[in-house]
Amino acid sequence: MPSIAHKGITTVQAGLFIPAVCLTFLSLLIALFGHFNRPASLCASFLTFISFVLTLATFIVEIVANNELKSGVNDLHLSTITVTIGPAVWMTLGAAIALFLATCAYFLACVCGVGRSRRHRNSTEPMREKPRGWFGRRV
């Protein structure tokens, strides 16, 4: 592979894959410290979707580069050189699928998540338990 083509493909892959990794890590932090509330799930869903799109674009660039390299080697008619898709390409596809599933899970957590149950009490109805103060202590 010519060095110019190798440098271009590597630059495109780094420009797509590194931001996807950073956004995935950020959505992981939001999920860990967001305490399962809807705005945090919506933000994590949006970041994971962007990561999914970037990872899918990286996979497409890898497949196109592989096909171009394979056709270039086939044009040379050299039987000693073979071009195959390596495990890194399939790991990129697996990462894209996992990010899609994570996007769906975050979105479902945002839309179908359990909200707080709010029971409307009449002002004439007596309170059944004492109100709680800070840190769940009874007042």
Score class of each variant (00 low, 15 high):
K70N: 03
K70S: 01
K70T: 01
S71N: 11
S71F: 04
S71W: 03
G72N: 14
G72D: 10
N74V: 01
N74M: 02
N74W: 01
N74E: 15
N74Q: 13
N74G: 00
L76Y: 06
H77N: 11
H77Q: 12
L78R: 09
L78M: 11
T80M: 02
T80V: 07
T80Q: 06
T80K: 05
T80C: 04
I81W: 03
V83E: 04
T84M: 07
T84K: 15
T84D: 12
T84I: 14
T84A: 13
T84Y: 06
I85W: 01
I85Y: 01
I85T: 13
G86L: 04
G86D: 15
G86T: 08
P87H: 09
A88T: 10
A88N: 14
A88R: 08
A88F: 15
A88K: 11
A88S: 11
A88P: 00
A88Y: 11
W90P: 00
W90Y: 15
M91Q: 15
M91K: 15
M91I: 10
M91D: 12
M91V: 07
M91C: 08
G94Q: 06
G94T: 04
A96D: 02
I97R: 01
I97P: 00
I97D: 01
A98I: 05
A98Y: 04
L99F: 10
F100P: 01
F100T: 00
L101G: 07
T103F: 12
T103H: 13
C104T: 09
C104F: 11
C104V: 14
C104Y: 06
C104Q: 07
C104E: 05
Y106G: 00
F107M: 14
L108Y: 04
L108K: 06
A109K: 08
C110Q: 00
V111L: 14
C112V: 03
C112Y: 06
C112S: 07
G113M: 09
V114S: 12
V114A: 12
G115H: 05
R116Y: 02
S117I: 13
R118M: 05
R119K: 13
R119I: 14
R119N: 10
R119E: 13
H120M: 08
H120K: 13
N122Q: 07
N122A: 06
N122T: 07
S123A: 11
S123C: 03
S123G: 02
P126A: 12
P126G: 06
P126M: 08
P126N: 05
P126F: 04
M127G: 02
M127S: 08
R128C: 02
E129L: 06
K130A: 15
K130N: 13
K130Y: 13
P131W: 01
P131V: 00
P131S: 03
G133N: 15
G133E: 03
G136E: 10
G136C: 11
R137A: 09
R138V: 14
